[in-house]
């Protein structure tokens, strides 16, 4: 299965999430949940339609596959992911220092937890990828 078909299937599967939110919003009469479901559903539906239209036209399909399989795009995506991760960690650290100074204990706990999970997830992902490649 190529990446376009996999993307269509994945998006169709993910579409169940906003559908679930809409049902939940209607059943519990919760307007924010219903609104979130509609918004998410609309965005995902547009994406899904775009992918299906892309799949129907051979030339657009080829262009799409060239773009998603493009090694430079993947290289840039990887690089920007790591830069964003470092930025997030340092931002969290700055807010954590602020929380310590202001004696905001709940924020301290939450931020410490998020930072630890982030670093741990990075270590695990790195270990798995280094074994794979």
């Amino acid at each position: 299965m190529n990446k376009l078909k996999a993307n269509i299937l994945w998006n169709a599967l993910l579409f169940l999430l906003p559908v679930g939110l809409i049902i939940l919003g209607v059943v519990t009469n919760n307007e924010p949940v219903l609104g979130l479901g509609i918004l998410m559903g609309a965005i995902m539906l547009i994406k899904l339609i775009r992918l299906i239209l892309c799949w129907m036209k051979p030339k657009t399909r080829e262009k799409y596959l060239n773009r998603v399989n493009d090694e430079r795009v993947n290289y840039i995506a990887g690089k920007s992911a790591i830069v964003s991760y470092i930025f997030m960690e340092f931002s969290s650290l700055a807010i954590l220092i602020y929380a310590i100074a202001m004696e905001l204990s709940t924020l301290q706990t939450i931020l410490s937890g998020i930072m630890c999970i982030g670093l741990f997830a990075y270590m695990i992902t790195y270990f798995i990828l280094s074994k794979k490649e």
Binding site: E62, K63, L65, N66, R67, D70, E71, R72, V73
Partner: peptide, 10 residues
């Protein structure tokens, strides 16, 4: 780009 399977930007 199309022949080698990458984008024009590459």
């Amino acid at each position: 780009a199309s022949i080698v399977g990458v984008s024009r930007q590459t």
